[in-house]
């Protein structure tokens, strides 16, 4: 059955590290209408934080630009989050998604995509050199039965 979008929002922020916290908090506030557990909210916040940090550390490493965040809630209680940049793009997406792989200087752990993958239900990354990257993540928020809350 095709799912219908029940609600959505979009947010565009300039590439500033102070917006990492703003972006994840905004998405968490949007998702809260589905009555997620604290664990589910934490998972989503962490995944969003990773994607936004990637935009800052990698996509716009030597430039300025915007981070485009869109979130959708579907009728089956699935949330879909899209985080897009118009930065440098990723040469080899599957290589970039390997755990511990990083091109980041200093103390980047190389775990961003691994975290997104394991904390969300699905992760898709599409990228084009010098055009930018789009990260699409989904997570289903199961309906909680009263008295059975975790």
């Amino acid at each position: 059955m095709k799912q219908v979008v029940k609600n959505n929002f979009s947010l565009t922020v300039p590439v500033r590290s102070v917006n990492e916290s703003f972006a994840r908090t905004a998405v968490a506030a949007f998702v809260s209408q589905l009555d997620p557990t604290i664990d589910q909210i934490n998972d989503i916040k962490t995944a969003v934080s990773e994607a936004v940090t990637n935009c800052i550390v990698h996509a716009y490493r030597e430039s300025i630009g915007n981070i485009y965040i869109k979130a959708y809630i579907y009728t089956n209680n699935t949330v879909c989050i899209k985080i897009k940049d118009k930065g440098v793009g990723i040469d080899n997406v599957s290589k970039a998604m390997e755990p511990l792989f990083t091109t980041g200087a200093g103390e980047r752990a190389g775990l961003g995509f691994s975290v997104m993958e394991s904390f969300m239900d699905s992760l898709k990354v599409t990228s084009k050199k010098d055009k930018g990257t789009l990260v699409t993540m989904t997570k289903k928020i199961s309906v909680r039965v009263s008295g059975n809350a975790k």
């Binding site: 934490n42 916040k45 962490t46 934080s49 990773e50 200093g106 103390e107 980047r108 752990a109 775990l111």
Partner: peptide, 13 residues
């Protein structure tokens, strides 16, 4: 209250 993989980088460093 919150930590992403930047915290992992901090620990590893």
């Amino acid at each position: 209250t919150f930590m992403d993989s930047s915290g992992i980088g901090l620990i590893m460093g």
